[in-house]
Amino acid sequence: MLKSEILKHNTIPLTVPAFPTTTYRFHNREYLNILYRTDPSALRRMTPEPLEIMEPLVRFEMMRMPDATGLGCYTECGQVIPVRFNGEEGDYLHVMYLDNYPAIAVGREISAYPKLLGAPRLYVDNDTLVGTLDYGSLRVATATMGYKYFPIDKTKAFGEISRPIFMIKIMSGYNGEPRICELVRTQITDITIHEAWNGPGRLQLFAHALAPLADLPVLEVVAASHILTDLTLAPVKPVYDYLAEEKIREVSYDKETSEYSAGS
């Protein structure tokens, strides 16, 4: 295989790519979101600087994706922390668990999604929308919500899933130390809201050494929502370089254009 052919690939094995190079479009993506209040000190320990916490809130997010371009059908869940960076409000992805290897690989290798292997499930049980996460053979999370109790405005639902997303991108060199360590930003695009509902919600998190979602304990459920949508994932852009702090101060955010740029 020639060097020019090798450079056309973005993942290994070269002859059996872990994921396709494509635009990732999701049809009928289904969300169950439980927003809850947690321990402020625990939240501070797990939120990387320079992100700022406004309130001690966490969103437990379940997503069933029956039709994802290049990735097929899978389910995903995780914890999301509302934050602020350079005056812009958004969400920091703390951890994600899913049951689809190509989605894990592309999320970690090409982007910065903190994806791990798990066994999440989202389904309707009589009059209840249920989301569960098993890690190995053990249950680590159970979320429930009354099924389609109250419709909510689609504009509100759009705002809930269109917020800027912040993640940490780490790639180690051969000495085991970080070669890349950046805070990156992305934002979901091309969103079409089909349905949106809210209702009573509850969330249980169970202690586990390797799936420590319960380290951000549930003190109070604030809101629950159920959203059905189409959307597209956008590429990430670095906004903070942990290995070259002098570059950090050169990055500024323009609220009018929603863009980050380097100063002169």
Rank of each mutant, 00 (worst) to 15 (best):
L35Y: 07
L129W: 02
K247V: 04
K154Y: 03
G136A: 07
E182V: 07
E256H: 07
P217Q: 09
I227Y: 02
E246Q: 10
R249G: 04
Y135A: 08
A103D: 09
T132R: 12
D254K: 04
D241A: 13
L228V: 09
Y240A: 09
I104F: 11
E245T: 13
L2Y: 05
L116F: 10
V58C: 03
F150K: 15
Y123W: 05
R25G: 03
G173T: 09
T128Y: 00
P200M: 06
S264P: 00
L35G: 00
H208K: 12
T189S: 04
T229M: 00
I188N: 00
L43G: 12
E52V: 05
F158P: 01
G173D: 08
A214Y: 03
S162M: 03
R45M: 14
D230K: 06
S172A: 12
V184D: 11
Y24F: 10
F206S: 13
A143K: 12
E246T: 00
P40K: 09
A214W: 13
S225F: 01
D215V: 07
H94V: 13
I180W: 14
M96L: 11
S264T: 02
G176R: 06
I12F: 09
E195I: 03
A42T: 02
G176Y: 14
S41P: 01
H27F: 03
V124F: 03
G107P: 11
P13L: 06
T15G: 05
A42G: 13
I191T: 08
E61W: 00
R25T: 14
L14G: 11
Y174L: 05
G87A: 02
P40M: 08
M65H: 05
N86L: 06
L205D: 12
C77V: 03
K247Q: 15
L32I: 04
T229E: 05
L183M: 11
R163M: 08
C77M: 05
Q79S: 03
M1C: 08
H226W: 08
